[in-house]
Design a protein around this nucleic acid. Structure first.
Lengths: 67, 67
DNA sequence: TACAAATGTCAACTATATATGACATTTAAT
DNA sequence: ATTAAATGTCATATATAGTTGACATTTGTA
């Protein structure tokens, strides 16, 4: 489970508004939030930018890597 | 420019070996390293795991976000 | 209860990530 | 100077990300 929905709600955006902000369809946001598929890196980066966070926060949750 | 090539060389892997390790074709690694396209999140995550790093290190370089 | 906004989901379509095979060029070692 | 390994790149094919439109369900609010 990624954390897009959490960050979107924290930003008080609807799926539709987030979709517009990153330039994809509303359904695409819905599918990403529900892990129905595998977004492109480009979309991940735009999501992180619009949600004022970064790739690790959104998509690296629970991974055990430490530097 | 992402840093896949830097991390691959640090791990002393060839493009072919890295491709095998993450389960894609060698050409795919080549294209990713040279920013010829837009990999899937899934591939990005496998690259980060195999290269013992994380998404931000590989693909968030130069982005200005701080938590 | 009723209504509207937000969300989930389906089917059909289009764009593009990724595969495969092949070949040219570069790099490194002999 | 040769040779092999590694890399860059092309063309064609396939899988799947992302679109569009539509409708059902949920959630919040009057």
């Amino acid at each position: 489970m990624n954390r897009v929905k959490d960050y979107r709600k924290a930003a008080k955006l609807t799926q539709f508004e987030l979709a517009q902000a990153v330039g994809v369809a509303r359904q695409t946001i819905n599918l990403v939030e529900n892990d129905k598929y595998n977004p492109s890196l480009d979309l991940c980066i735009r999501l992180a930018q619009v949600l004022h966070t970064d790739l690790n926060q959104l998509f690296w949750e629970g991974q055990v890597h430490e530097k």
